[in-house]
Nucleic acid binder design. Structure first.
Lengths: 333, 333
DNA sequence: GACATTATCTGACTATAGTCAGATAAATTC
DNA sequence: GAATTTATCTGACTATAGTCAGATAATGTC
């Protein structure tokens, strides 16, 4: 599915394996330090006199929740949750009543006291975070939260699976129609579903469709279609609005390049609409060069091309950092 | 001690407060996501059939530890630890014996079985980290661990306290002598303690000495000395070898600038030796401009100067990101 | 309308994590 | 060398977190 060590040269494969092992150790080192020092933020320190599980439930209730949802979300045993809720009820922090939709389901809401308690909890958590930050000058505070933002985004990205799907499948069609819906809104001239590539053109040797899914939900797609011998065209690059800014576009582009290389394509072209600035910036930074119009490309004002090397991604760690950064696009998006 | 919101203009103070609040929320958001998704790395998933506390003890024993140290390091009740060790002993994973130095103290070591078990534990933890990373292409894996490295360094930096100390105190002298020891090794011509600024020149209106401490241990220092009306000289900038690469030099420079501004100094000068490249790079990126020699400065080949604005740090978030980055040094060190 | 399913609750358990008050023996202080 | 301190151990507790097997009532399926 993902191709981080797909390599024919044993030496390179060896090095890639080594690099990944080191990265795992770096991640573990972070985890050790973080849980030791910041575990405070989540741990019982927040609950003060309250068990952690009760505090967690209080956090999750918010505007009122089905106990059923709560159980699933927190992964709790139904008996355990029942008792937790009962205890919070006795403390006057939550009220439970039947759901209007389903008489079996019970809904928990915060009482005024409960809301106050939750505000307190939040206050304390933010206070702890602030105390942690206040040790640093503003510029370094900003660097710290930028780093944690970035890490959070990439952790989320790592939970998204990207893989080839049958373009005529229900999932594929749903994803493409969400893509079409968005283009309809963004293109001044509108967009017609007929401009989508047919399922036949994305199957077998003719092309491929990759779909990105997070917890089973489609979060983006990208397609490639053979337009000449050795030449493929990237189509339908789309990232769900709720998954933007985490590097999914860049990853999809990488994955489709790997897939295209696997189809023995040597050149990739693509056409894009002038209103899609963020896409244009992505293509440029991923090594695509502007070219003249190369064929019938509806809704397009910009055309790009990239020659795939033997390996679509240069992982040349021994080269200068600058070169590396440019070639694989380490620059922030 | 630290100056992140030291501001005379109420409006600016307001905004600074707002910014810090937002940063706290970003940190909390990271914490929520991280503990939920990666808590796996540290949590009971590692211990498999073993309670978390036993697994933690197993991790910490390593080459053999005093139970006394272990108790302090893990913050455990002595009775509790005693029972944990007893349980691991019964499982044949650790052996305990008396300490050769102190008959009261007991030392725990891993048996062969214990070592195997620890290897297993480590294997599993690295495997989990790898599984997490393997969802990403190599370039984005690298971005992720770079972000966590950076976050770890800055979290550590936030635990370091920087403050003015009496330059004739024991702590100050120890720190300065560590500084002098290092210069003796790095300067081809050697270094004489007589070249250190006297305590008198760093006291009262004449100057100041800031020391950075982590868990009570000195990790660096920096001094300022008034050399002309309105003009101060930065001296004795030093970061402990074990605390390099986390941004402490930059922070010390910032703190001394704030301190100098508080002494109504308007210009800061400094002189540095040619072999200290990393220091020279720091001064440049913090807005210091090279100048001609300005006075008797032993062991120096480079001279720098910076004019302090009313506020030594521009926190001008509304300016272009590029400008901001340049002025406060967001560039990686 | 019989039957299966689902959401919650209750009672009875267990495991883990810890706390606290002495007891004991070695080391340190005076 | 007596008194104090320190490191560990033991026994007796408590709190938290969780599991599991039914019981009950509302819903969905046929």
């Amino acid at each position: 599915m993902t191709s981080s060590g797909d390599d024919v040269h044993p030496q390179r494969a060896q090095r890639a394996h080594h690099e990944q092992r080191d990265r795992a150790e770096r991640l573990r080192e972070f985890n050790r330090y973080y849980t030791q020092r910041v575990g405070i933020l989540s741990d019982r320190y927040l609950g003060q006199n309250r068990p952690l599980s009760e505090a967690r439930v209080l956090f999750e209730i918010g505007q009122g929740v089905d106990l059923r949802d709560l159980r699933v979300r927190l992964g709790l045993d139904s008996g355990f949750l029942s008792r937790l809720i009962r205890s919070l009820e006795r403390q006057g922090l939550v009220a439970v009543g039947p759901s209007p939709d389903d008489g079996r389901v019970r809904v928990a809401t915060l009482t005024d006291d409960g809301r106050r308690e939750l505000d307190d909890l939040n206050e304390r958590a933010t206070g702890l975070a602030n105390r942690l930050l206040s040790g640093l000058p503003a510029a370094q505070q900003e660097q710290l939260v930028s780093a944690t933002d970035r890490a959070r985004h990439l952790l989320r990205l790592s939970a998204i699976e990207v893989g080839a799907v049958d373009p005529s499948s229900e999932a594929a069609r749903r994803c493409l129609s969400a893509f079409a819906d968005e283009l309809r809104q963004r293109f001044p001239e509108g967009f017609d579903d007929a401009d989508l590539v047919s399922a036949r053109e994305l199957s077998g040797d003719a092309g491929a469709l990759l779909v990105a899914t997070e917890d089973g939900e489609a979060r983006g797609c990208v397609a490639v279609r053979v337009i000449e011998p050795d030449v493929g065209e990237i189509r339908h690059m789309w990232v769900h609005p709720g998954a933007r800014g985490i590097g999914l576009g860049r990853r999809l582009l990488h994955e489709i390049e790997v897939h295209a290389a696997g189809m023995d394509l040597r050149v990739l072209r693509l056409a894009t609409h002038g209103v899609l600035d963020e896409a244009i910036a992505l293509y440029r930074s991923a090594g695509y060069a502007a070219i003249d119009q190369y064929g019938p490309t509806p809704h397009a004002q910009h055309w790009f091309e990239k020659h795939l090397g033997r390996r679509p991604e240069t992982r040349n760690a021994s080269a200068s950092p600058d070169l590396h950064e440019r070639s694989v696009g380490l620059a922030p998006q």
